[in-house]
Simulated scan of single mutants.
Amino acid sequence: MLRTLVALCALALMSCGGPSPGPLPPGPEAAGRAIATPHPRFADHDPHAWDGEAPWSYPVHGIDVSRWQGAIDWATARAAGVSFAFVKATEGVEELDPMFRTHWEGAGRAGVARGAYHYFYFCAPADAQARWFIANVPRSAASLPHVLDMEWNPRSPTCRHRPDPATVRAEAKTFLDILERHYGRRPVVYTTVDFSRDTGIERLPGTEFWLRSVAGHPRETYPGARWTFWQYTGTGRVEGVPGPVDINVFRGSLASWTAWERSAL
């Protein structure tokens, strides 16, 4: 998620707290969320020469966004082939992404399937972080499963702690369990190659995974791992989105996407 630059900037600009603005109302949804253009092939600011199974062999693509994408023309992005979006909501126990509400409502109006994600902070309890997410993300029948983003942040100015693998997995389970009870579906876990290697996060049972792999297919970078989403670039170019953006694919056919999305509603 452009994590190196984005995480540094986000933490550097992190607010010092303050009261939550309260939960966001669900907002309008476009009628019918049919798939956008199947098998879109987006441009890239820093393209990778894919060998073998390329990302565009998958029919369903989407983006993940935060404040760093700025104002997005969601209708244009959907017309370009964006079928789903994961929107950054919260981080730790006090940061709410200032563009969350704008992105959340814009995606909904355009008929883009949407979920929210939380960036985990290793110096705060998982239950407190879950409560912060719940305080800011609506319980909407039209949402996709939400996401727990777990990755190391070696440049954080406030927390570079790296718990042992068992602690990481236990904290993740606590967060996932709380959100599952509240929203009715277990969140997806997003992770990176080094975090996966260091923690064995994919050992969590009953959990779907979203894997970052920008220079190779997940079967190469995460041998034997199960996954539902694959983030294949952090420098994508999508009409309607100013500047670079992360692009992802859903693992499966159009029919399996429809079934998966409906099971979330």
Rank of each mutant, 00 (worst) to 15 (best):
R3L: 12
R3E: 13
V6E: 12
L11T: 12
L11V: 07
L11Y: 11
M14N: 07
S15Y: 04
C16M: 12
G18S: 04
L24Y: 02
P26H: 09
A30I: 13
A31D: 12
G32M: 08
A34H: 12
A36I: 03
P40K: 07
F42A: 07
D44L: 13
H45W: 14
H45V: 15
W50R: 03
W50C: 01
D51V: 14
E53R: 02
I63A: 08
V65P: 02
W68R: 15
G70T: 09
G70V: 05
D73S: 11
D73C: 11
A77C: 08
A79F: 11
V82S: 02
F84T: 01
K88A: 02
T90P: 07
G92N: 03
E94A: 14
W104I: 02
E105M: 10
G106K: 01
G106I: 00
G108Q: 00
A110Q: 09
G111V: 05
V112M: 06
V112N: 04
R114C: 01
G115H: 00
A116L: 05
Y117D: 00
Y121F: 15
D127H: 14
A128S: 15
A128M: 12
Q129W: 09
R131T: 13
R131M: 09
W132T: 04
I134T: 03
A135W: 05
N136Q: 12
V137W: 01
V137L: 03
R139V: 15
S140P: 03
A141R: 13
L144H: 00
D149P: 12
M150D: 08
M150F: 15
E151L: 13
P157Q: 10
P157E: 03
C159T: 01
D164I: 12
D164L: 10
D164W: 10
A170F: 12
F175V: 00
E180N: 12
E180L: 10
R181E: 09
Y183T: 07
D194Y: 12
T199Y: 08
T199Q: 03
R203F: 08
L204Q: 05
P205D: 08
P205E: 10
P205W: 05
G206R: 11
W210R: 04
R212D: 07
P218E: 00
A225V: 08
W227H: 06
T228S: 10
T228L: 09
E239V: 02
V241M: 07
G243K: 00
P244L: 07
N248Y: 08
N248M: 10
V249T: 10
F250R: 01
G252N: 01
G252L: 12
A264F: 01
L265Q: 14
